[in-house]
Design a protein around this nucleic acid. Sequence first.
DNA 1: TCTTAATTACGACATTATTCGTAGAAAGAC
DNA 2: GTCTTTCTACGAATAATGTCGTAATTAAGA
Lengths: 130, 130
Amino acid sequence: MLSKNKKNSPTESELEILQILWETGPNSVRFVNEKLNDKREVGYTTTLKIMQIMTAKGLVTRDTESRTHIYHPAVKEQETQNSLLDSFIAKTYRGSAMRLVMQALGQEDATAEELAELRQLIDKMENKNK
Amino acid sequence: MLSKNKKNSPTESELEILQILWETGPNSVRFVNEKLNDKREVGYTTTLKIMQIMTAKGLVTRDTESRTHIYHPAVKEQETQNSLLDSFIAKTYRGSAMRLVMQALGQEDATAEELAELRQLIDKMENKNK
DNA sequence: TCTTAATTACGACATTATTCGTAGAAAGAC
DNA sequence: GTCTTTCTACGAATAATGTCGTAATTAAGA
């Protein structure tokens, strides 16, 4: 495991915004705010403010060429999820990823493809053990 | 899935305290505070205050017979974890438990026993699909 | 009894995250 | 050029959580 994340950790609102940028690519505050409003009511300046804070934190970068700034995600989805996952496992499952996996699987209705993929992953882990 | 949790959701500090009570059984503020201090410095009245709040929320109950109150967990560990897990999956993995499982497994060094247990669980899920 | 120690209750403060109002700059419509 | 709209910047209000100081109460010991 090479690159370990030092200190990402977006807040909940920040994560919501990152997800929009990951999904749709670089975009303006206006666009992000409208996306957010599909789910819940948020004021424009609220979204703006959070995205400004995210810029300061280095979670996004922005292109200020034109008056309407374009925001780019500056962290990777996988890495962010991993870092959140680590801390979630530590806090909630006292560090046992296996316990989390078992419970998560219990709640899931998986397709045959997903199950096959899982088995493959497990085989790979088995080999690594030897 | 019968009993769905309505509204548990302990905060981070509350969860820490619950974990101590789950592990060691009903105990006093003094005891819990000392356990917490194994990991980090916390004032006695801080712990007391949080446990009082937890009582108000129904996360614990307390026996006030003797002067030193004894606190009992009032929520189950599994159910609490499940409810936290649901919300974590929703927020971080946009609802896809499978994606979380894959990533969690990727970070894990599992024993042969755990892998066997996993396979068993997957088999059970396969049958359920039919 | 008197003093000391431990405990609970309560309120205030600190910190972090979120929300939004307002002002001013920039762009476009006419 | 003037008016209107859209945008950014900034500061302040709010809310949730965590922290702790202080007072009052109880128990125990000398």
